[in-house]
Amino acid sequence: MTSDNERDDLVRGFPVDAGHLDLLHRRLAAAAETAGILDVAYDVVDTPVGPLLLATTDLGLVRVAYAGEDHEAVLQTLADRISPRVLRAPDRLATVRGQLDEYFAGRRRTFDVPLDWRLSRGFRQLVLQTLPEVGYGQTASYSTVARLAGNPKAVRAAATACATNPIPVVVPCHRIVRADGSMGGYLGGPEAKRVLLSLEAAA
């Protein structure tokens, strides 16, 4: 029988570095996808607005989450609302990651990835689907967005939709500001909103 000390010696004799762990994780993700047991793939990427959690399903990108939202809590919500079969699978997010890199480098103005809208419903979803109509480098008021979504009186509901956008950056709620031109709230915080607007204004 192996003692605790002997087991510790064995572990020390076979160190596992980050590269090996990443390779193992990718193999597990590939095996899960092949077996049809990977419903939500996620990755975390570093960006000028902090680490962003990206999550996708077979339908498309379903979540982009700022660190301030608590990535563990976001993953739990995805497990509860979509499927418990959630796994880190960077390869599934390669296209989104590449487009985000281009965006933050000032080389991309629109995103071209399929989106899974299931975390937003009704009028909120309508509002979010109109946001790309506010072009890169432009801003619009919450009242304008409410009108674009078909209900000019629902300004507060439009603001709530922007504040709860499950796919920020890619779905550009950061371009929506108050009627007086002030920034208003933002899921990623005021500094993240300022960075995004400044990036687009400089292009």
Rank of each mutant, 00 (worst) to 15 (best):
G181R: 10
L115G: 02
D80I: 10
Q138P: 00
V11S: 05
Y66V: 09
D43K: 03
R118L: 05
T95W: 03
A146T: 10
A67C: 00
F111R: 06
G137Y: 14
V195I: 14
L78G: 03
H20Q: 13
S3P: 01
T2V: 14
L93V: 02
L131D: 04
R81S: 13
V74W: 08
R88H: 06
P90H: 02
D91C: 00
F111E: 10
L24R: 14
D116T: 07
R156V: 14
A30M: 01
R178K: 15
A146I: 06
R97A: 12
Y136W: 15
F123Y: 14
D180Q: 07
Y66S: 11
Y42I: 09
L187C: 10
D58R: 13
A35V: 03
L128N: 07
T95Y: 01
S143T: 14
A73W: 03
V170A: 13
R26T: 10
M183V: 10
V145H: 00
H174L: 08
V171Y: 01
F111A: 06
D39C: 10
P132Y: 03
L100Q: 08
L10Y: 05
D101K: 05
A146K: 05
R118M: 04
A65M: 07
T77H: 14
V11D: 07
G184E: 08
G181N: 12
P168V: 13
A203S: 13
P48V: 09
P132T: 06
L196F: 09
A161K: 08
I167L: 13
V45E: 11
A35S: 15
A163E: 13
V170Y: 07
Y186Q: 00
C162E: 11
R12L: 13
V170Q: 08
V64P: 06
